[in-house]
């Protein structure tokens, strides 16, 4: 059953970047850029190791909203800035809140922080058709 939304609704969604997550995501998405799957390439690029594909970090934000509204087809828009790479063993906590309902859409503003409290996304917004 698709969920009715109100301003102030919140959700929390937690995802861990386990050791193989960038490889699993590469297999599922086709994004095999070496900086995601090859520790040597990640280090050579000055990133300190392999980093998770940003689009997986984005997908987790969308997933959190889909889980909350219980209807994947209602997602109208997502917008994010990748402010910090997600590294192996990072845990990302997404907290979403409906800040407005306008023009037939509910606007979720989403914070996404790693276990140190650093933002991995900034300005993250997901809009849902109401």
């Amino acid at each position: 059953m698709s969920k009715q939304l109100s301003v102030g609704d919140t959700f929390t969604h937690v995802r861990e970047c386990d050791k193989y997550r960038p490889i699993y995501y590469a297999a599922a998405s086709g994004d095999f850029n070496p900086i995601h799957i090859d520790p040597d390439a990640g280090k050579a690029a000055g990133l300190g190791g392999p980093i998770l594909q940003g689009l997986c970090t984005l997908s987790w934000a969308v997933e959190g909203v889909v889980n909350h509204v219980k209807d994947a087809t209602r997602i109208a828009k997502v917008k994010v800035r990748f402010s910090r790479p997600v590294m192996i063993d990072d845990t990302v906590t997404y907290v979403g809140k409906v800040t407005a309902i306008e023009n037939g859409k509910a606007v979720f503003e989403i914070s996404a922080k790693n276990q140190k409290g650093d933002d991995v996304l900034k300005g993250a917004v997901v809009e849902v058709r109401v």
Binding site: G54, T73, V78, V80, R81, F82, P85
Partner: peptide, 17 residues
């Protein structure tokens, strides 16, 4: 140089499933 490339921002508008 792809090794120097990072993904800065992403936006999608979704229409048909």
């Amino acid at each position: 140089n792809l090794l120097m490339l990072v993904h800065g921002e992403q936006e999608y508008e979704f229409f048909e499933p």
